[in-house]
Amino acid sequence: MLLRILRRTGILLASLVASTVLVFAFMAVLPGDPARVALGVNASDEAVGQLRREFGLDRPLAAQYLSWIGGLARFDLGTSYISHAPIGPQIADRLMVTLWLVVTAMVIALVVAVPLGTVMAMRHRRPSGVLLSALSQVGVAVPAFLAGILLITVFAIGLGWLPANGWTPPDQDPVMFVKQLTLPALSLGIVQAAVLTRYVRSAILDVMREDYIRTARAKGLTPTQALRRHGMRNASIPVITVLGLQLATLLIGAVVVERVFVIPGLGSLLLDAVSNRDLIVVQDVVMVLVLAVLVVNFVVDLLYLVIDPRLQVSSR
């Protein structure tokens, strides 16, 4: 077990280093000059060259790369080309906002999907289960931003119950924070719930076909009792995998909903930085996103070990 953890840690570190190279190489081929964007439409070539030197863009790529990852290793994300502000605190702020949104959405998704998916699985031969299943299919087919637009139209503009958009940090005004978080979290959560429901359902259906459940049923337990006593633990494994991945990819996936609800999250920061060619910000944000996915995968892997000791021996 320890060996496995060590091995996974090694892979995590190697992946991190590999991804810094990938990300940096990608930035190097990005056309468009940050210095020119900063100086605007009428800038002279001399001024642009001067600013490029200031940014260090005239150095060889290898030197630029080394100074970047050197900074990363010291947790120094550098200074934005465009705003001249340190990037670390900016990313931390934006990440916080996006995490609030994404985690709330995932909680909503879980609260909806687990019971619903279970019901769908247990009743999969009955009309109610079939109906729920069909509904979840429709839910998967709706783009999240469309859900957001519909929610705004009905609850913000139609009924006036909640604000249509905006963001207030929780320590500034907790009531407003909750009000403004509700609709975006719902629109993200509903769509994720539709997806998650289908995983829960199929995980439970798989488990219910296992021999140990049949044995339990033969001993006279109802399907629900058998599931609760013997199946839940096993069914949770694929669901956790999916949950982890949803969480990590939603950090960027939420950008569409952030745009609809005017939320200053990580995705918006990335889009702005891309269009301003604030390359160092782009690099840093992408690295944060990649780091998040890798770490979540790592944690999910460790969770397997806790939940399902069999995985220690079986080679996947």
Binding site: S133, Q192, V195, L250
Partner: peptide, 12 residues
């Protein structure tokens, strides 16, 4: 696309 895992799991 929007970070949605692809739906697996068969229908009844």
């Amino acid at each position: 696309a929007a970070g949605e895992p692809l739906p697996v799991g068969g229908l009844p």
